[in-house]
């Protein structure tokens, strides 16, 4: 009994020492893996703001936190700078319905560091997490990916998938031509004065064209 106790105790102490050794090694390797040379004063300010507004209790980051809102680890790569900038300034403009993020009335001086922080996080080497989805049900045209990436499906549905706040786009190609759709993307109020759809004028021209081509193809 005494011998087995001693062996177990020694093993436990060894495990604690090994853990401390691995911690030292991890802290040595961490700067390269997280590109810590990219952590500018602006990135640090972004992290402070992220913590100040307690974003982490709704969103996960590196998969940790609240499960109520999307993980932001790769937000910068998936959504892009322009989308995030508009969203942070006025979340309801991008998501007028359903689960909402409060409007923190962020100033430009706050949005810039937050974006710098999200950009830095998106470049951290996370050992391949999150995994790329395996199953794409069918081959979709490029415009469909833009439709999803820009969250058009929050309000518009196509073939039963999407929101109901705005018109169903299943047969959009039978109702409007490409020029009309481009006008709508650039200035939603050009067709309807009280439209609550946000403007997508900031999208690069090629993406707007691909999105419009895709919608026109929906006959």
């Amino acid at each position: 009994m005494t011998t087995s106790r001693s062996i177990l105790s020694v093993l436990t102490i060894i495990s604690a020492v090994v853990f401390l050794g691995m911690t030292i090694d991890t802290l040595r390797k961490l700067p390269a893996q997280t590109h810590s040379d990219q952590i500018s004063a602006q990135v640090v300010e972004g992290k402070r703001l992220w913590q100040h507004y307690d974003c982490n209790d709704c969103h996960t980051i590196l998969g940790i936190g609240g499960y109520y809102a999307p993980d932001v680890t790769k937000s910068y790569t998936v959504r892009g700078d322009a989308w995030l900038r508009q969203f942070l300034k006025d979340p309801a403009a991008m998501y007028p319905t359903g689960r909402q993020m409060p409007n923190f009335h962020l100033t430009d001086a706050q949005v810039a560091p937050l974006l710098a922080y999200l950009k830095w996080v998106s470049e951290v080497d996370t050992n391949g997490w999150p995994p790329a989805p395996k199953g794409v049900a069918r081959q979709e045209p490029a415009g469909h990916a833009i439709f999803l990436a820009q969250h058009c499906n929050t309000c518009h549905a196509i073939q039963g998938s999407g929101g109901t706040l705005a018109p169903d786009l299943t047969h959009e190609g039978s109702r409007h031509d490409q020029a009309w759709i481009l006008d709508q993307l650039n200035d939603p109020r050009s067709h309807k004065a009280d439209s609550i759809m946000p403007s997508f004028a900031q999208l690069p021209g090629t993406e707007k064209d691909e999105l419009a081509e895709y919608l026109v193809s929906l006959k």
Partner: peptide, 10 residues
């Protein structure tokens, strides 16, 4: 420590 920017050996 799998996915938070720490070494793969974890």
């Amino acid at each position: 420590y799998y996915w938070i920017g720490t070494p793969h050996y974890w």
